[in-house]
């Protein structure tokens, strides 16, 4: 009977942390502009719900459009790299460089290029940059993951390059592509948040801007409320992608 306990354990831990937090704030009279009690945060969460929701939609939209933009570059490039080792050798170092360069370091540059009038371009571009690597890498690994014996069979049956691609490599890549998308979704939210914070103006009205704005004004309960909303957005997004991945893979392998 470990299952109910498994589900209860994280809830219990969260309850303990929140309880201790609440008690500590009250007992020590911690000022609300330093650390609001969970009860204050709950109030802020409820009273700001419409604003937080519309901000979450902005961030979500930025993340998803970035994912789309990223996919438009990553998948064709992965395909080209899978077909030609030369292309792979050319692209991979650049992709890796893009991956290891800290996003916050290039954010001010991208924000400047986008201009003050269009901070949403910067959020999309930066989120697209971080989502690129998992999409590219997942697709490329997947395209090269086909069973070597199946590859041999395709040799034997004289498959054309197009047949090999469409009947073997592309379908074989599905699990890896989906995994890449799952990681990419999470990273694109991070990218959007970093971009909104770096833009540093109210031009983009996403959740990260709510955090920046309220911290500057020491409205910490609202900061935490925005943080909670952001975590919830990321968790829901992850859950949805995970569910979609499971369903698609179930159909892919027939069980």
């Amino acid at each position: 009977m470990t299952r109910p306990l498994d589900m209860l354990a994280p809830l219990a831990l969260s309850a303990v942390i929140i309880g201790v937090w609440e008690l500590a704030c009250r007992a020590l009279s911690v000022p609300i502009y330093l650390l609001p009690a969970p009860s204050d945060i709950s109030v802020a969460l409820v009273s700001n719900a419409p604003l937080l929701f519309s901000s979450a939609v902005v961030t979500l939209w930025a993340a998803l459009s970035a994912l789309l933009v990223s996919a438009l570059f990553a998948f064709p490039l992965a395909l080209a790299a899978a077909l030609s080792p030369l292309v792979e050798r050319a692209v991979r170092p650049l992709a890796v460089t893009l991956q290891v360069t800290p996003l916050v370091a290039i954010a001010p540059l991208v924000v400047t290029w986008a201009g003050l009038d269009h901070p949403e371009y910067a959020t999309t571009a930066l989120a697209a940059v971080v989502a690129f690597f998992p999409l590219f890498s997942g697709a490329l690994t997947g395209l090269k993951s086909a069973d070597p014996d199946l590859e041999r069979l395709f040799d034997l049956y004289g498959a054309t390059p197009v047949q090999r691609l469409m009947r073997l490599r592309v379908p074989a890549s599905a699990p890896f592509v989906l995994e890449g998308v799952k990681v990419g979704v999470g990273l694109s939210v991070i990218g959007a948040v970093v971009a909104e914070i770096s833009a540093g103006s109210g031009g983009s009205q996403g959740l990260a801007w709510r955090i920046v704005e309220t911290t500057h004004q020491l409205r910490m309960a609202e900061t935490f409320a925005a943080l909670v909303a952001l975590s919830m957005l990321a968790v829901i997004l992850h859950a949805v992608t995970q569910y979609a991945e499971t369903q698609i893979l179930r159909k892919w392998r027939g069980r």
């Binding site: 069973d147 014996d149 199946l150 069979l153 395709f154 049956y157 004289g158 498959a159 047949q163 009947r167 073997l168 379908p171 074989a172 599905a174 892919w252 392998r253 027939g254």
Partner: peptide, 21 residues
């Protein structure tokens, strides 16, 4: 190993060499 394409049905796996031809 059977070396079947996991995403295809049994029928399509068996028909594969013919389709490639």
């Amino acid at each position: 190993a059977p070396t079947l394409a996991p995403w295809e049905t049994v029928l399509n796996n068996v028909a594969l060499p013919l389709r490639l031809a």
